[in-house]
Amino acid sequence: MEFCPNCGKMLMPDKGKIKCRCGYEKSLKKEDLEEQYHMEGETNPEAKVIVTDRNNVALPTTTITCYKCGGTKGYWWTVQTRSADEAPTNFIRCANCGNTWRSSN
């Protein structure tokens, strides 16, 4: 892998050359291109994709009391909604009705 001597961006292969968006280009031998820029994706035919829906949520659970339906199981997650020097915001979603609110912690 090489970087542009003009702007420092990574040079990408294109039609037997490596080029930069700034206009710089350099010719390479076919062997060098294959050695430096040949990438292979995952070839595992057994790989499976997990699809989740409302009935199969991949979030941690906690015991709650939903103020809308009275449900007792909730999913929770944390999001950094403000700057990094402030505490993150915790959210809870009722597993029964889907009602979502911020945690008071």
Rank of each mutant, 00 (worst) to 15 (best):
M1S: 12
M1K: 10
F3K: 15
C4Q: 06
C4M: 09
C7M: 04
K9H: 06
M10P: 10
L11P: 05
L11E: 05
L11G: 06
M12R: 05
M12D: 00
P13N: 14
P13R: 12
K15H: 09
K15E: 08
I18C: 10
I18M: 03
K19R: 15
C20G: 03
C20I: 02
R21K: 12
C22P: 08
G23E: 06
G23L: 02
E25I: 01
E25G: 01
S27T: 09
L28S: 12
K29P: 14
K30N: 11
E31F: 04
D32G: 07
E34W: 02
E34L: 15
E35V: 11
Q36K: 15
M39Q: 15
M39R: 04
E40S: 15
E40F: 09
E40N: 12
G41M: 04
E42D: 13
E42C: 14
N44C: 15
A47Q: 11
A47I: 14
A47Y: 14
K48Y: 00
I50L: 08
I50F: 11
V51C: 15
T52N: 13
T52S: 07
D53T: 04
N56I: 01
V57G: 01
V57W: 08
L59R: 04
L59Q: 05
P60D: 04
T62C: 13
T62W: 00
T65V: 10
C66N: 01
C66P: 08
C66Q: 03
C66S: 06
Y67C: 00
Y67W: 09
Y67H: 09
K68F: 05
K68V: 00
G70W: 03
G70T: 11
G71M: 01
G71A: 13
T72G: 03
T72Q: 10
K73G: 07
K73Y: 01
K73D: 07
Y75A: 04
Y75W: 08
Y75P: 10
T78V: 13
T78S: 11
Q80C: 09
R82D: 06
S83Y: 03
A84I: 01
A84K: 08
D85F: 03
T89P: 09
N90D: 06
N90Y: 05
F91R: 14
F91S: 15
F91K: 10
I92W: 03
R93G: 08
R93Y: 01
C94V: 00
A95F: 02
N96F: 11
C97A: 10
N99L: 02
W101S: 08
R102I: 04
R102V: 06
S104M: 07
